[in-house]
Simulated assay, not measured.
Amino acid sequence: MGAEPARAFKVPQSVLVVIHTPALEVLLIERADAPGFWQSVTGSKDTFDEPFERTAAREVQEETGLDAGASDHALRDWGLENVYEIYPQWRHRYAPGVTHNTERVFGLCVPRPVPVRLEPREHRDQVWLPWRDAVERCFSPSNAEAIAWLPRLGGMPRQ
C-alpha cells in the first residue's frame, strides 16, 4: 500500500461568465446538485497562475461545449470582481483559513441562442431568457447583478 496522494485545495479565485446574444438573451444553466439553482457559467482557476481569461474559456467549454475562441464569439473581461464569503459547508475544499473567494466577471457574446452540451454531473437543464427574466431567475445575487449590466454594455463587445 502506497501513501495517499495529497489532496489539492481549490484556488479561491474563480470566474463568472455571462453567455448572451447581441439581443441580450442570456443562457442560464440549472445545477444538478441543487434543482432550482439557475446560474451562468462559473468555475475556479486550476492554479493560481492560470490567467482568468483562460479559466473563463475552459469553464465555458467544460460546462456548455461552446468554444469561447470561435470566430463568431466574443469573450471579454468586464473588469469587475466580486469578493464573497465561501459558504461554510464548502470551505473544506480550500486551504485552512481561506474564507473568501474572488470572482472575475466575463461576458461571452454569441450570435444567437444555441443549444449547449451540459456536463451532466454539474448541470441538468438550460434555458435562454431575455436579460430581465434571467436576472429574476438567478439564485446568486452577484450573478443577477452581472446580468443586469448587459444593457449598459450594449450586448456587443467593447474595444
Rank of each mutant, 00 (worst) to 15 (best):
E103H: 01
G69V: 03
E103I: 11
Q89M: 14
Q89R: 15
E119F: 09
P130G: 11
R54L: 12
E136I: 03
Y84V: 00
S14K: 03
P120M: 12
F52D: 15
D46N: 11
E81L: 04
G107H: 00
E53S: 12
A6W: 02
H100M: 09
E30T: 10
T47H: 06
N101G: 07
L118M: 06
R54N: 09
H123E: 10
E81M: 06
G97N: 13
M1F: 08
T102E: 05
V110W: 08
R137A: 09
A34E: 07
G65C: 12
P151E: 09
S71P: 02
H73S: 14
S142I: 04
N101P: 00
V17E: 01
E85Q: 08
M1A: 14
T21F: 03
P151H: 09
Q159E: 14
R93C: 05
D33V: 08
R132V: 13
D67M: 13
W38E: 01
E25W: 14
W128N: 12
G97S: 13
L24S: 05
A23M: 00
S140Q: 09
Q126N: 07
P115V: 07
L150P: 01
S44T: 13
E119Y: 09
F106C: 06
P113K: 12
R104V: 10
P111F: 08
A23N: 00
P115S: 11
Y87C: 10
G43I: 07
G79P: 02
A3W: 05
A74M: 04
V18P: 00
E85I: 03
E103K: 03
V60T: 14
A144Q: 04
R91A: 04
V18R: 03
R91N: 02
H100D: 09
I29A: 06
G69R: 15
G155T: 08
E62C: 05
D133E: 15
R117S: 14
G43D: 05
G43H: 04
G79I: 02
D133A: 15
M1T: 13
V114L: 14
Q39V: 10
D77G: 04
T64G: 08
N101C: 14
C109D: 12
P151C: 11
Q89W: 12
L24Y: 00
W90Y: 15
E4C: 07
A146T: 08
R104W: 01
A23T: 05
E53H: 03
P113I: 11
W131T: 11
E4M: 15
T55W: 05
D33K: 11
L80Q: 06
V26A: 08
L129C: 11
L150M: 10
V26R: 08
Q13M: 05
G107W: 00
G155Y: 02
F48C: 04
P141M: 06
E30D: 06
D67Y: 11
V110K: 11
L75S: 02
R132Y: 03
A95W: 01
A74G: 08
I19H: 01
V116R: 09
D46A: 14
C138V: 08
R112D: 13
